[in-house]
Nucleic acid binder design. Structure first.
Lengths: 164, 164
DNA sequence: GCTTACGATCTGCCCGAGCGTACGATCTGT
DNA sequence: ACAGATCGTACGCTCGGGCAGATCGTAAGC
């Protein structure tokens, strides 16, 4: 089941780390987690992007739709139908900024906030059940490390040092 | 920059966790990490899937190509050209199983193993530089938690409990 | 020997997502 | 008033990847 990378001889120019690549563990974990959470989103008729919008909207005041799109790393054109849908369902407000009528001020409606809280509660409950598999110390470290990494402004590209 | 979710009132039916969703942190982290590591793979002429194959090949003995594809969660048809390329470059062997000539036994060649070690050293060096941003305790907990989660056989789907 | 099952391979279809372009409405500076 | 920039929106292209079907070789059971 669990394949741990056996420690190998030291490759040229690198210290051995005695663990699989972070990405090789993170990517499957991400996929599995997203798959696991999809039923919850489906049950509430939310697409992943729509949920990302709801999540982001009340954490930081929104300036423009393009900024919102960039914040959740979505495409600025593809976010339009998502906002259309959320607006049609009464989950967000989208009104022109009186100060600059080019921009639309996007905000959560009370129903939007409620749905968001409900869905997030479901999701986080599932996540907590997942985290329960870990010993308490590792669980806290994992979450704290993840929060810290998530807070990093950006991740610089790795440099191939060995002769290309 | 770093937006921490402010603790909110408890949503109906769930305990508040005072942290963003795991997935909401993991997915951007994955994307950023993969983006950061792409230059390394490019420098060695390896696609992501090809690297996944090399990574998987010497950790567990391979039975069939379809099993290999499933193990790295790739499509069984899409993996063929990848194996073709790796084989043409002398990085893997693909010979018919004498016991059952339907199946092809896939294994790493010495050059394949060397390339894999080189690339992995580059990648893990970059990852270690990233982890250096964390306090030692959180770093260890993060890696240990990640390894443990990665070792889980599967992640059960979350159940939407609130009235769908 | 025949039928059925299975693995590898190929081909084609469809979808989601990234990206560029274009256009209308609006703001800003001159 | 006019030029240039900015925002929201629509359209279209392209690519990667998931998926289904078809073919061929091989294996196993009858």
């Amino acid at each position: 089941m669990a394949e741990h990378a056996a420690p190998r001889d030291t490759p040229p120019g690198g210290r051995p780390t005695d663990r699989p690549d972070l990405a090789a563990m993170l990517v499957p974990l991400c996929r599995a987690l997203v798959d696991a959470e999809r039923p919850v989103l489906d049950a509430h008729g939310l697409a992943m992007w729509a949920y990302a919008v709801l999540l982001h909207l009340d954490e930081t005041p929104i300036r423009t739709q393009a900024a919102l799109a960039e914040a959740i790393r979505a495409d600025k054109t593809r976010i339009i139908p998502i906002l259309d849908d959320l607006e049609a369902r009464g989950l967000i407000h989208r009104r022109p900024d009186p100060g600059d009528r080019r921009v639309r001020l996007v905000s959560l409606t009370p129903e939007g906030r409620r749905l968001r809280d409900t869905v997030q509660a479901d999701i986080q409950r599932g996540e907590e059940r997942l985290l329960a598999h870990l010993p308490a110390a590792d669980r806290d470290g994992f979450v704290r490390g993840l929060v810290a990494l998530h807070a990093l402004p950006e991740i610089p590209p790795h440099q191939p040092s060995s002769g290309a």
